[in-house]
Nucleic acid binder design. Structure first.
Length: 217
DNA sequence: ACCCAGGGTCATA
DNA sequence: TATGACCATGGG
């Protein structure tokens, strides 16, 4: 797909997800829900400093302590509960090694069954923590490609995902890079700038406010 | 003072 | 099925 070529030529290889372990990646996936990554980094650092970035410690801690550590990442009351759910799920399935034994589909169903894990969080975990090839759809993806006239913003998650499954090769590497590049582009170019210099994507700005203004045409 | 962020759940019609 | 409210902190 042409968008991928443009992005990768401009930004280079991303090598996502930024985490030192699979479990850390999963924690990050929960914490970054509708939240800037910079805030999540503070929360993760707090957990690391307290030696709490593992499922056993999270389950052993009381909820107040956990909430305090992840406060910078926002929504700390629901997210603390979600981390507990994640930890239970992680241990119940035999950790990263155990999880990797399952097929993509059964893993996805099980992840979606965890309270607080929706389609994007599930697919992110599958793609970046468990090395399962899936296309991750986020708000940026919808804005970029709807702006390019490929589909409507109102398309549902699974329909957008299938749109890409039909058009790009089924490759773990490609899926990992593609989503990372989309997020990279969103952060680097479209935060706080209506017009970007040397924009690799035809000056398509994809912040929430910008797309609303542009859609008035 | 306002808008937004690497979503998801729940209540309502 | 499909909207809307709500969650909460931190940066622009």
């Amino acid at each position: 797909m042409q968008v991928y070529e443009l992005l990768t030529a401009h930004y280079g290889e991303q090598h996502w997800w930024p985490a030192e372990s699979s479990f850390e990646m999963m924690v990050g996936a929960i914490l970054t829900q509708n939240t800037r990554w910079e805030n999540v980094e503070d929360a993760i650092q707090n957990l690391k400093n307290a030696n709490m970035l593992n499922p056993e410690s999270i389950l052993a801690s009381d909820i107040d302590q956990l909430e305090k550590m992840i406060r910078p990442s926002g929504f700390f009351r629901q997210k603390s509960r979600r981390l507990v759910e994640l930890s239970n799920f992680f241990l119940a399935h035999g950790g990263t090694h155990g999880l990797k034994q399952w097929s993509i589909q059964s893993l996805r169903v099980r992840l979606l069954d965890v309270h607080g894990i929706g389609p994007e969080t599930a697919d992110s975990i599958l793609l970046y923590a468990l090395d399962k090839p899936l296309f991750v759809v986020d708000a940026y993806t919808k804005r970029i490609f709807s702006r390019l006239g490929m589909f409507e913003t109102a398309m549902k998650y699974d329909d957008v995902q299938n749109f890409f499954f039909k058009r790009i090769p089924n490759s773990l590497q490609l899926f990992q890079e593609f989503h990372a590049l989309i997020v990279k582009h969103a952060k680097q170019h479209c935060s706080s700038k209506p017009q970007c210099d040397h924009c690799p994507l035809f000056n398509i700005c994809i912040t929430a406010g910008e797309i609303d203004r542009l859609s008035d045409l």
